Simulated scan of single mutants.
Amino acid sequence: MAASSHLSLRPLPGHNRPIFRSICRPVLCAADRQALFNRIAPVYDNLNDMLSLGQHRIWKRMAVSWSGAKEGDNVLDLCCGSGDLAFLLSEKVGPKGKVIGVDFSKEQLSVASSRQHLRSKACYNNIKWVEGSALDLPFSDCYFDAITMGYGLRNVIDFRTAMEGMYRVLKPGSKTSVLDFNKSTGTLATSIQEWMIDNVVVPVATGYGLEKEYKYLESSIQEFLTGTDLEKLALEAGFANAKHFEISGGLMGNLVATR
């Protein structure tokens, strides 16, 4: 499917201020993105460690902490990939809690399941992996006590539908915590990000035969929303409050929204 750059402006019901709704954003469409994450699944974890110098583990712990997940909770890790956030959530909710990891990539879920079987903590038995779309969540309303989403929102083709879905399945008073690359409004952070992608990320990925797969990063960040826009998006989706935190000097960001 060819990528399209057409965007539509459509206000949410009851709101006069429209937000951007992507019909099919540049870079990749849904099927292409799914194929991309299937291809990179075997080396995804190794690349994350290498490219972030292990810092992604700190950022993910921060995201889980911001979600407010606690012992006994029923929680969702959306766009779970190989399961890093889901495993951290399972430690928070304990053996009496429940974690559901959802992703549209069969290969990523296969890696996550394999990792689960190699781990011995009893709490990891509470994780269930589900193949599904962030734009069509197969859960009833007000079902989860917390939601995390790590590096997933930037890769869906419709930000608004994804945010509305998270709002729908969250219980009142519960939080969603969305970690991703930060689209900075500052020139310094933006320049550092671009330099890192061009001079570190792509060359390293090229060594794994994945140059084309990782070149999409820069464009996907450019097409992402700023922290302020993410806060507005969450509020327009129905969340009671939303706060975006810049971390690692503005290279990364985490949206925390309360239903």
Rank of each mutant, 00 (worst) to 15 (best):
V156K: 02
A3W: 15
L47M: 05
K121I: 12
S52P: 08
L89S: 04
I40T: 03
G150R: 01
C24V: 06
G186L: 13
C29F: 05
K128L: 15
P26I: 07
A31G: 04
V93P: 00
Q108V: 08
A257K: 12
V102T: 06
D32M: 10
S8W: 14
F245N: 03
A30P: 02
T187S: 04
I127T: 10
V169D: 00
N254T: 13
S65A: 04
A234E: 03
A69M: 10
S220L: 03
F181K: 00
L251N: 11
F139G: 09
A205G: 12
L47Q: 02
Y216F: 13
F139V: 15
G253D: 03
S220E: 08
F239G: 03
C79S: 10
C80Y: 07
C123N: 10
E211W: 00
E107F: 11
L109S: 00
L109V: 04
L51D: 06
R25I: 06
T185V: 13
D141W: 02
C29L: 14
S110H: 05
I40D: 08
N126T: 15
A41G: 01
D198T: 08
D141E: 15
R160V: 05
K96Y: 09
V156R: 00
K96A: 15
D73E: 11
L9W: 08
R10Y: 09
N155F: 05
E218L: 13
L137Y: 02
T228C: 07
M196A: 14
D229N: 11
G209F: 14
D198L: 00
A69T: 03
A162D: 01
I197G: 01
D73N: 12
G173H: 03
S248N: 13
V99S: 05
A2G: 08
V99E: 07
H56I: 10
R61L: 09
S184H: 10
Q193H: 12
A2H: 06
K212H: 14
V99P: 04
S220T: 13
T161F: 02
L235R: 15
I23Q: 11
V43G: 08
K106L: 10
D45M: 05
G14V: 08
D49A: 12
V156P: 05
G253I: 09
L153C: 06
C24Q: 07
G249Y: 10
L188C: 09
S52L: 12
